[in-house]
Design a binder for these strands. Structure first.
Length: 436
DNA sequence: CAGGGATGCAA
DNA sequence: TATTGCATCCCTG
């Protein structure tokens, strides 16, 4: 290790030409020069600017959740006939499975009785206490992690400043920490209320710009599957189309439940899911899941080809690449341990998809940031959540900036299918209205 | 006090 | 026995 900053600087200078040659030989120079290097300044700006939090609203919401949580807690003690630490999976399992003799359907990988949500959901129908524990968990999770977490992170101006890690993931995505702004609740009544605490200052509005179905579009591009590409070119609802193919019905006959299942299937395919895994997700038999998967590949045959090809590429080269040549090495692709080998195969399938999405978003951030600056807009990028950018924009410039951001995001990289960015606007992150 | 396990939040 | 992350809490060493 260098013993001083001076020595460090000299070491970097010495390394520079060597690393430059390595990057060029890996065909990653353009990614480096046009994306990762300029992105540093974008991220710096985002971190320094921060995002405004409605502290008083968040405190009140926290107190409301605390009251709700205490009520649920007392009911649990009443039913259990004993006071204990509901947060401790160990103590909870003791009460549920020994004291109250509830059926114990699953164990954790560590061999202990599982109290995870799917287990409690199965018990909730018959046993009030399971439903109450789920409610308690949701309230306490959201309150302790997000309300207390955000409140303890705000600066005197009521802004939080996350740290983005540009090199922290295996696929090229960003990671966010202290606080993590990429896992703020989005669903559920309480979750949506938490998002409302992210606000625009007086005279400004928040704009959210998110890539529609970007990973499935990339899968369409990478596989070249005609049916999948066509669905996107025609602007069709991709989950409904998958439901049509898999369940053999007309588009107007697709029920909400069929679309829900097709959506799970679409995501699963990009992750390299197995029949067993899909069955687990859908709550059906593996045989039925296998039939659904077979129907899917009948309709989208080149998706299966892509999966076979990319796994073979990984076996030959011990790495896979994104469209912008980002690499992920997969040393376990031929590991004798089946579990590790299959995990590496799924990573080989998913990384080009997830990683290309990260490439495109990073490139878009650079062009959007530069454009805002060059045009002198009173607008800042404040957050990135993988396929979404959130911006703080002066009230009078909202429509102009929204159009600009949409155009930049959609044209930053050309795929075989269109890229689509949807633009919403609002005074807070929880209540936004689609405008473009 | 560090670190692993369980749990659960997001895309 | 689906991909990528991070935070909190519990519990042990």
């Amino acid at each position: 290790m260098p013993a001083s900053v001076c020595e460090l600087a000299l070491t970097v200078a010495e390394l520079s030409p060597i690393l430059e040659r390595e990057v060029k030989e890996a065909e990653m120079w353009e990614l480096w020069e046009h994306v990762e290097m300029p992105l540093i300044f974008v991220l710096t700006d985002m971190e320094r600017h921060g995002v405004l939090i409605d502290v008083n609203y968040l405190r009140q919401l926290g107190e409301e959740m605390m009251r709700a949580s205490k009520q649920v807690e007392e009911r649990i003690y009443q039913i259990a006939g004993v006071r204990f630490n509901i947060r401790s999976p160990q103590q909870l399992a003791e009460v549920l499975f020994n004291r109250l003799k509830l059926p114990m359907p699953k164990r954790t990988p560590g061999g202990k009785p599982s109290t995870a949500a799917p287990v409690l959901e199965a018990l909730a129908k018959e046993h009030e206490i399971a439903r109450l524990v789920l409610e308690f968990r949701e309230l306490e999770k959201l309150r302790s992690t997000f309300i207390e977490g955000l409140l303890s992170a705000v600066d005197p101006q009521h802004r939080v400043h996350t740290t983005y890690d540009q090199t922290g993931t295996a696929t090229g995505r960003l990671a966010s920490s202290e606080p993590n702004l990429q896992n703020i609740p989005a669903r559920g009544d309480w979750g949506k209320k938490i998002r409302r605490a992210f606000i625009a200052p007086k005279g400004y509005r928040l704009i959210s710009a998110d890539y529609s179905q970007i990973e499935l579009r990339i899968l369409a591009h990478l596989s070249g599957d005609e049916a999948l590409c066509q669905a996107f070119e025609r602007g069709e609802d991709i989950h409904t189309q998958a439901a049509v193919s898999v369940f053999g019905v007309k588009p107007e006959e697709v029920t909400e439940d069929m679309r829900r299942k097709a959506k799970i299937l679409n995501f699963g395919v990009a992750y390299g899911i197995s029949a067993y895994g899909l069955a687990q997700q859908l709550g059906i038999e593996p045989e039925e899941a296998q039939r659904i998967i077979d129907r899917y590949f009948e309709r989208f045959p080149k998706v299966r080809n892509y999966i076979e090809q990319i796994v073979e590429f990984a076996r030959q080269n011990k790495f896979v690449r994104t469209l912008m040549n980002r690499r992920r090495f997969l040393p376990d692709i031929d590991n004798p341990d089946q579990r590790l080998r299959e995990a590496a195969q799924r990573a080989a399938i998913n990384t080009p998809v997830q990683g290309t999405s990260a490439d495109i978003m990073k490139a878009a951030m650079v062009t959007v940031w530069r454009g805002l600056k060059e045009r002198g807009y009173d607008a800042h990028i404040t957050m990135q959540v993988h396929d979404e950018l959130v911006l703080e924009v002066a009230e009078g410039q909202v429509l102009e900036v929204a159009k600009f951001v949409k155009r930049q995001m959609e044209s930053v990289f050309r795929l075989k299918v269109p890229l689509v960015a949807e633009i919403k606007v609002g005074d807070n992150w929880g209540e936004m209205e689609r405008i473009l």
